[in-house]
């Protein structure tokens, strides 16, 4: 049993587990990410608020979730928080998605805050000087510009979350890594199942990288190309 005598057929026999693992990993990551974007947007806007009773809770939240390990958060949510609220566990999926949303939101909040703050002050002033309300100015002028700048860090966050989702194996969620652990435990072979896990994560993150690069290229920093053409016809 060593690296020169790999037995891929063992992994192949467990292929259904790995396929299910990919599904679980993707569901966890996608739910956590898009939930985290929504919650993160509110937290990010909250951190930009001049009202202290809005700012401080948002800041506290972000500091708390960025400053503690996600592994600890998952265990606390699964073993303590949810059973305390509901009287019993709601399963690894609910706990896993909750933990990923809450954690991802904290990081996304900082991305949103930084993106909005990076837009020159003159843009808000120009919009307000025309008579737009703060909300109208945000919607029509600030956010459309800020979102473009947020795409690269939001892409990074997705990749980070995809990898961090493997931490849910600790509450027995049957994701990619969990499948590898089962195979390793049953066969006492370690190279093959963990190499497969690594490869599967690599393929997924590489795919995401490509998608982000494509979006970035389409919404490149210059506002001029493509969009300007064909506009007259409207």
């Amino acid at each position: 049993m060593d690296i020169f005598d790999l037995r891929w057929d063992i992994v192949w026999n467990y292929r259904d587990m790995f396929i299910r693992g990919i599904g679980v990993t993707l569901i966890l990551t996608l739910s956590g990410y898009f939930g985290g974007i929504l919650l993160g947007l509110f937290l990010g806007l909250g951190k930009l608020s001049t009202r202290k009773w809005i700012y401080w809770p948002c800041k506290l939240y972000v500091d708390l979730f960025r400053g503690t390990p996600m592994l600890v958060q998952i265990l606390l949510i699964h073993l303590a928080l949810i059973p305390t609220i509901f009287g019993h566990s709601l399963g690894y999926m609910v706990s896993g998605i909750t933990a990923l949303i809450l954690n991802c939101a904290a990081y996304n909040a900082e991305i949103f805050r930084a993106g909005i703050q990076s837009i020159a002050k003159g843009q808000m002033e120009a919009a307000r000087s025309l008579g737009l309300t703060h909300n109208q100015a945000m919607r029509k002028v600030i956010l459309p510009q800020a979102f473009r700048r947020m795409i690269p860090p939001l892409g990074n966050e997705f990749i980070a979350l995809l990898k961090d989702s493997s931490l849910v194996t600790v509450i027995a969620a049957p994701d990619i890594l969990y499948a590898s652990k089962i195979v390793a435990g049953a066969s006492y072979r370690f190279w093959e199942p963990y190499i497969v896990a690594a490869l599967l994560y690599l393929i997924l993150t590489y795919g995401v990288t490509k998608i982000v690069a494509y979006i970035e290229k389409r919404l490149s920093n210059s506002y001029v190309p493509r969009k300007a053409e064909g506009r007259e016809a409207r």
Binding site: A120, G122, Q123, E125, A126, A127, R128, S129, L130, G131, L132, T133, V141, P144, Q145, R148, Y223, A228, R231
Partner: peptide
């Protein structure tokens, strides 16, 4: 104040046009 600002235009040193709009 928004109604007042709509009646009083402003032109800035740095133009401050919205770069994402034609």
């Amino acid at each position: 104040i928004n109604a007042i600002r709509a009646e009083v235009g402003m032109v800035f040193q740095q133009f401050n046009l919205f770069p994402h709009m034609t």
